[in-house]
């Protein structure tokens, strides 16, 4: 028994390390490139001879205010979309009967819509309500287009919260609203956190809505600046990789912050 367990552990370490190395290798190339001068970039797998920091200067100049715009867009949009996902997912997880299922499927069809096809009606709508080229316009858009996914995600998460908790709460005189706010949300931090991480990544990396709905320094997100490095005919690999390294930081920060709530046994006593 003991040997089998340790054999299992050895193979676990083996797999974990091999996958980690494979995952890191392309990132090493990217990082090396970020520190190379244009002269050295022609040799993809070489090491930079000195730390060439100009790429970061170029990246910073190019991204400029757009980095702050991205933060101003992403943070509230993540909060709104996750909260809205919880709000939509809650009744869908607890309501009984056909109507909830119909609404659920109705919302899910939204996940199948390729975003490229919504852009013209979206552009017209956002301009009509006066939110073109504004950060609140981006909040609204991201929140709205996150409805199907966030609802789907939270509905499934809430479905894993034992129903006995709900019944008990109702019997104790806690209304459906109170249950949602005081019991269900606190008990669902790991789901909310996972969703917040995914949403941070999705909204932070959005390019399509950023290009369609903003047009200048006021609201343009960083992804537009990053995509600019592969614009026209030329490709600026050094600054592109430098900008990428910088742009990964906020999403990683969100990941590190939110994943703290992935704590085992959060629902401990209420197990099935």
């Amino acid at each position: 028994m003991a040997t089998r367990v340790s054999a299992g552990r050895v193979s676990a370490y083996f797999i974990a390390i091999v996958v980690a190395v494979i995952f890191l290798a392309p990132l090493v190339v990217a990082t090396l490139t970020a520190f190379k001068s244009p002269r050295e970039i022609t040799q993809v797998l070489s090491f930079p001879t000195q730390l060439y920091l100009d790429n970061f200067v170029v990246a910073a100049n190019q991204m400029g205010r757009s980095f702050l715009n991205s933060l101003a867009i992403t943070i509230p949009a993540v909060i709104f979309s996750v909260v809205l996902g919880a709000i939509g997912g809650y009744p869908l997880a607890y309501m009984r009967g056909g109507s909830s299922r119909w609404i659920y499927f109705f919302l899910l069809t939204g996940m199948l819509v390729p975003f490229q096809i919504v852009q013209i009606p979206l552009f017209i709508f956002i301009r009509t309500i006066g939110l073109y080229d504004t950060i609140p316009g981006m909040w609204l858009t991201h929140t709205a287009y996150s409805v199907p996914f966030c609802t789907f995600f939270m509905r499934n998460f809430f479905a894993s919260v034992p129903r006995s908790m709900y019944e008990a709460a109702l019997i104790e005189g806690c209304g459906p609203f109170g249950y949602f706010w005081r019991l269900l949300l606190p008990a669902s931090t790991s789901g909310l956190s996972a969703l917040a991480i995914i949403q941070s990544r999705y909204i932070w990396n959005d390019l399509l809505f950023g290009i369609t709905l903003t047009n200048g320094d006021e609201a343009q997100p960083a992804t537009v600046a990053i995509a600019g490095f592969v614009s026209g005919v030329q490709v600026q690999y050094g600054p592109l990789m430098a900008a990428t390294l910088v742009s990964v930081v906020p999403v990683m920060a969100a990941y590190l912050i939110f994943q703290k709530s992935f704590v085992r046994g959060l629902l401990g006593g209420a197990g099935k």
């Binding site: 996958v19 990396n205 995509a227 999403v251 990941y255």
Partner: peptide, 11 residues
């Protein structure tokens, strides 16, 4: 394991 997921598509 999570790092690559955070990288924008162009990169």
């Amino acid at each position: 394991y999570f790092l690559p997921f955070t990288i924008p598509a162009v990169a």
